[in-house]
Write a protein that binds this DNA or RNA. Structure first.
Lengths: 329, 329
DNA sequence: TATCCAGATTGGATCGTTCAAGATGGCGAG
DNA sequence: CTCGCCATCTTGAACGATCCAATCTGGATA
């Protein structure tokens, strides 16, 4: 059984003191070149790795970031989180941080979990995915000066905090332009009920683009909770009411439903979804694609900015989505 | 700014010594009832939480479990991991453990990451999803006596280690019986190339069930890499060659492809997939469903068994899948 | 009353690291 | 020659918990 390699082992091996080894690790510039080299050689020779628990005890920093993994509600849109988490883990790793998972069934429990994670693990920061008007979670964190980033804008803009988001309106605008360019005029929209920040944003992109093109969007849109069945129902409704030649949806779930409602029509009704989920890729659904890896990387950037000394509030990041063209539009 | 609450704060508040507080936390039975109550009240009143770093330094245990999050290759089958991870986080939480994510692009890097995680974070255990013949990862971990569980059987059975798996053969057998009961005889199978443990297992369930029913499976199966396009290609091939009335696939991706190849046929060809992914649910594909939450829970059970003192090697767990009936079969 | 014992409690050492302050030695200025 | 300064390195203490060994307490027994 190999002896445990501590900073003292390295110090002995390199014939310096513990503190000098520590300095080589944390402030190399104050150590003489020759000594530094000797210590680094010893570190490599012994395979030394700084013990995080001991370091944490002294510095109060765990180099741990918490992210929530959700219960995969719909399943279709769940994969967005999945891809985001993967990106987060990868980028955090590169920055010397690790991602810790947690779950919670509601806001209260989630906040209780924050307390627990902070108290016992001394987490350095949180990444929240999705925010809503008057989110109690961000308020709680901000109140306690816990560093955090949200993937999603603070829709009420009461408290400014670092965030990264994808410009949903730009995405739907781009999709709408694509349909206009293809000659469509009666372009419908199936989205979420007014009041959800994300939903309103996506609808606005469609609406504004139509208006700019001189098309009146009145009567061309429907609102509902997310879901395939709902998408199908509203699309049938739209066909009877306004007979659109194309439809843009706020999610791939809705788009999938809409697609079922227009199967076999001639001429075919164009359908575009949102999120570019695996389902969309699988069935050839054109969809607005979010740069999730990039978003995750920017979240980590913002966090390390806050954690590693930058006291200025970092600037939010708004990323541009792209349109994944497939054969439904 | 609230003073930091340590074990000493609690001790002072409850008028006992630090050690008594520690005993209340770790071996409550040796503390007098009345004293214990007083200490617990103090803990609650002060909102004390044991500092994990300090505890870890003394005990050498981090209460952290590592799991790998993959790059979402296909996307369709990726959601299996997603759901598994969620279950893992939930159950680990209940057992007092937390899940730490890591990524790796190949086996060598993954093993390097093990070393890193063990060295700096003193991880308690690893959960590996998916194993293959002669997996170098399990060998590395076993060699160093690092506790771990795999979700997936050790296919070469060289080194026995704790594992949890879902009985794929039982799943395909059940699906095949379902098709036989519906009157089908020419039931085809589209699976993965011979040599993958999981793939061979799934094919065996189909083959054995057909043989038992007196149907010769020869010529009724095809093998390929996973993918929608591949599924579609092989299904067309099968139709020309043997005109099956039903087909069972080793994955939902393959099934999705097969489904596209038989769209509009009359009478309709029945299709069954495997994994019950969100895509299957979305498009109404009948599919073999793995109890992922249960599997995750059993993984945690096995690990805590090993970690919390049980020296006997725990018995592997083989779970039974179920058939999610939808309208394609 | 003295002795003993089991169970409850106490103080001190320890885990591996970083922080704060002190020691060492060389060099130029007064 | 002495002083101060700088660069470099070393020493002692601390973070917050647990483990160990020693001490205390109260009741039963002689």
């Amino acid at each position: 059984m190999a002896e445990k390699v501590t900073i003292a082992t390295v110090a002995r091996h390199a014939r310096v003191s513990r503190q000098t080894v520590s300095n080589v690790l944390n402030s190399p510039h104050i150590v003489r070149q020759e000594t530094r080299q000797r210590v680094e050689d010893a570190i490599n020779a012994l395979g030394y790795r700084a013990n995080q628990a001991a370091r944490q005890m002294r510095t109060g920093r765990s180099r741990l970031i918490a992210a929530r993994i959700e219960p995969t509600r719909d399943g279709i849109n769940g994969s967005v989180l999945d891809r985001f988490l993967h990106g987060l883990t990868e980028t955090a790793d590169a920055a010397g941080y690790r991602v810790l998972l947690y779950t919670a069934t509601d806001d209260d429990r989630e906040i209780a979990t924050y307390g627990d994670l902070l108290g016992t693990y001394e987490l350095d920061a949180f990444v929240l995915v999705g925010t809503k008007y008057g989110d109690p979670r961000t308020a709680w964190l901000a109140e306690r000066d816990v560093p955090f980033v949200t993937f999603g804008r603070p829709w009420d803009a009461l408290d400014a905090h670092p965030w990264v988001d994808v410009d949903g309106a730009a995405g739907t605008a781009q999709a709408t332009r694509h349909l206009l360019d293809a000659g469509h005029r009666r372009i419908a929209f199936i989205g979420w009920p007014v009041g959800s920040g994300v939903g309103d944003d996506r609808r606005a992109g469609w609406r504004d683009t139509l208006l700019a093109a001189g098309v009146d969007p009145d009567g061309l849109h429907r609102e509902t909770e997310d879901g395939i069945a709902e998408g199908e129902r509203l699309m049938r409704d739209l066909r009877v009411a306004v007979a659109p030649t194309a439809v843009l949806c706020a999610s791939d779930s809705l788009a999938l439903g809409a697609l079922q409602a227009v199967r076999g029509t001639d001429p075919p009704v164009s359908v575009i979804g949102f999120d570019d989920t695996p389902v969309a890729a699988a069935i050839g659904l054109t969809s607005v694609s979010q740069p999730l890896g990039e978003a995750a990387a920017r979240c980590v950037d913002l966090l390390t900015g806050v954690l590693d000394g930058n006291h200025e509030t970092p600037t939010p990041v708004l990323l541009q989505p792209s349109l994944a063209l497939r054969h439904t539009a």
